[in-house]
Structures are given as structure tokens and as C-alpha cells.
Design a protein around this nucleic acid. Structure first.
Length: 301
DNA sequence: CTCATTTGACCGAA
DNA sequence: TTCGGTCAAATGAG
């Protein structure tokens, strides 16, 4: 835990540094500004970078604040008959975690690319929410028995924010890889929101079943939450994709094995404004997926 | 044509 | 009953 706090601070300072750098670059451009349009796009890009950093810093600070102030109440952990408690909580916790996707440009369709092929299979108005929730399943569900599912819902408060909930793990091997070297800066943060959940009950083999895997995943996530909002942040700068692995010049993150077995993830993604089509975004999300898949999140599967 | 999306129907859980 | 997740026919895009 302490280590994590340290990590977070490191991330914050790193991001602050990046922000300063971008600021300096911006002022540089101002003084040497020519009339070329590329200079303008550079400026927008930099502005976006600044905003991205701002977001990341803000989220990190928030999280840290939460960690220090909101300590988990102890009674939750070891109270009463755990089986009964688990059953009782089962339902109400479906909402506990969410993945938020920050899209800097107000991307209207809300389709967040994450390196996998998704097929929309439903949309629902959600009680109490202004915006409908869209349901996606992996395109290779039937061809490769991939049970991955995701839900995307535009944030009520911030239209540029999409809350994305991932359910199930990809068993397909069809990650979209479009290396397409870019000079984009991209930061991905993950964190969990939710209430208290302690028990981890279901076994990993259940995760492969199309139904009823959600609960187990939610549980694991909440377990995460119990560990005080584990927060992971990654930054990828001029990374490359090689031999199925992403190389990043900069990587910051707290890897938490506590999430093992969880097929659901939460994340905050800040995407650059220039992110227009899915290809470039894919590569970034692919990198995230790879890291998650290989290192911790699904390690129990 | 094929394949993806839309959208109301359907169903299970609470 | 309501709510949320999924299904599947209709529709649209290419």
C-alpha cells in the first residue's frame, strides 16, 4: 500500500513534469510561430497533451485523496456469515465498477476503440441515467468462443467521458494491431470505483462461461477497491509494437496481482484530440490489453 | 450479396 | 411489477 502511494506520487510528479515540458514547448511555438498550418496543429496537439496531463493528475490526486481520507470501515471485512453477506450483496454490486474513458474530443459516437473487434448487440435506457448504455460483445464470440463483453455509457456529467465496463476476458487472439508509428502521446489510467466487497468466491473456470462470469469479476474488482482504489497509470510515448509486445519509452504503473482472475477492468483513458479513426486508438488500447492480459489482470485464468 | 447496427421483444432477477 | 441484459428481426452500409 505504501508502495502504491509512492508510485502514485511518482506518477504525479512525472505527469507534472510532462505538463511543464508541454507548456514550455507551447511557449516556444508561440515565439517562433510561423503561419504554417502544421504549427497550428502542433499547438492543438500540445493543448491536448496539457489537458490530458491535467486529467491524469487530477484523477491521481483525487484517488490519493480518497485513499488517505476514506479508509475502509473495518466492519465490512469480517462481519457475520460471509456466505450470507455475499449472497445479499451480489446483486447490488453490479454497478460497482466502471471504466471511464475520457475522450478529449467530443467524439459523438462514443465508440471507444480498445484493440478488439466489438459488435453491438443491444442498447438500453438506464434508469436514472440520461444516456443509454450500449452493449457490445466480441466479434469472435461464435467463431472463437470469445466471451468478452463490454458496456459503454456516456457520462451524465461530462459528455466527453464514456464509462466503459469490460466483462469477461478475451479468449480470441484477434487483437487489432496497427502499429502505425505515431508521435501521439497517450496516457491510460485505471482505477476502480465501488463499494466494499471482500469475498472472492467463484473459480476461474467459471470465467470461461458466457453467463454468470460477471459476478466473479465484479467481486475481484471490489477486492481491488478494498485495497484502496488501486490505481494504475501508464504512459506510452512513441511506443512500438514488436513481436506481440509493446515497448514503451515510458511506463509507469502499479501492477496488482490482486486483480487476478478478474475479467473486468476499469480504466480511464485519455485520448488525444487527433484521435479520429480507430486505428491509432487501437494500438494504444492494444498495448493496454497486452499488459493487462499478460501481467496481472487475467493471471488466474 | 454479407455483415453490422438498430431497436423492440423477451427473459431473469429482485 | 420494474430494471437491466440479451436476443433477433428489420434495417442499413458497403
Amino acid at each position: 500500500m505504501q508502495k502504491m502511494m509512492m508510485e502514485e506520487k511518482l506518477v504525479i510528479s512525472e505527469l507534472e513534469l510532462g505538463k511543464d515540458l508541454a507548456n514550455r514547448l507551447m511557449s516556444n511555438l508561440k515565439h517562433t510561430s510561423s503561419s504554417s498550418s502544421s504549427a497550428d496543429s502542433n499547438k492543438t496537439l500540445i493543448s491536448e497533451i496539457l489537458r490530458v496531463y491535467q486529467n491524469a493528475i487530477f484523477m491521481l490526486s483525487l484517488n490519493e485523496h480518497k485513499n488517505t481520507l476514506k479508509r475502509r470501515s473495518p466492519e465490512i471485512d469480517n462481519d457475520k456469515d460471509s456466505k450470507i453477506m455475499f449472497k445479499k450483496r451480489k446483486t447490488s454490486d453490479k454497478k460497482t465498477e466502471k471504466v471511464k474513458v475520457f475522450v478529449t474530443t467530443g467524439q459523438e459516437n462514443g465508440s471507444i476503440e480498445d484493440g478488439h473487434c466489438w459488435r453491438k448487440y443491444g442498447q438500453k435506457e438506464i434508469h436514472g441515467s440520461k444516456n443509454p448504455r450500449a452493449y457490445y460483445r466480441c466479434t469472435h464470440r461464435f467463431t472463437q468462443n470469445c466471451v468478452a463483453v463490454k458496456q459503454v455509457q456516456k457520462s451524465d456529467t461530462d459528455p466527453s467521458v464514456y464509462e466503459v465496463k469490460y466483462l469477461g476476458n478475451h479468449t480470441c487472439n484477434n487483437i487489432i494491431t496497427s502499429p502505425k508509428s505515431t508521435n501521439m502521446n497517450f496516457s491510460v489510467s485505471m482505477f476502480e470505483e465501488g463499494r466494499n466487497r471482500v469475498n472472492v468466491t467463484e473459480k476461474s473456470e467459471d470465467m470461461m462461461k458466457p453467463k454468470k462470469s460477471e459476478e466473479a469479476m465484479m467481486i475481484n474488482l471490489e477486492d481491488l477497491e478494498n485495497k484502496k482504489n488501486i490505481f494504475r497509470t501508464f504512459s506510452f510515448l512513441n511506443h512500438e509494437f514488436e513481436n506481440g509486445e509493446w515497448k514503451s519509452n515510458l511506463f509507469l504503473g502499479e501492477l496488482s496481482p490482486a486483480t487476478s482472475g478478474s475479467g473486468i477492468t476499469s480504466e480511464i483513458v485519455t485520448a488525444p484530440a487527433s484521435l479520429k479513426n480507430s486505428e491509432t486508438a487501437d494500438s494504444y488500447f492494444s498495448s493496454l490489453d497486452n499488459i493487462i492480459d499478460q501481467d496481472w489482470l487475467w493471471s488466474a485464468l
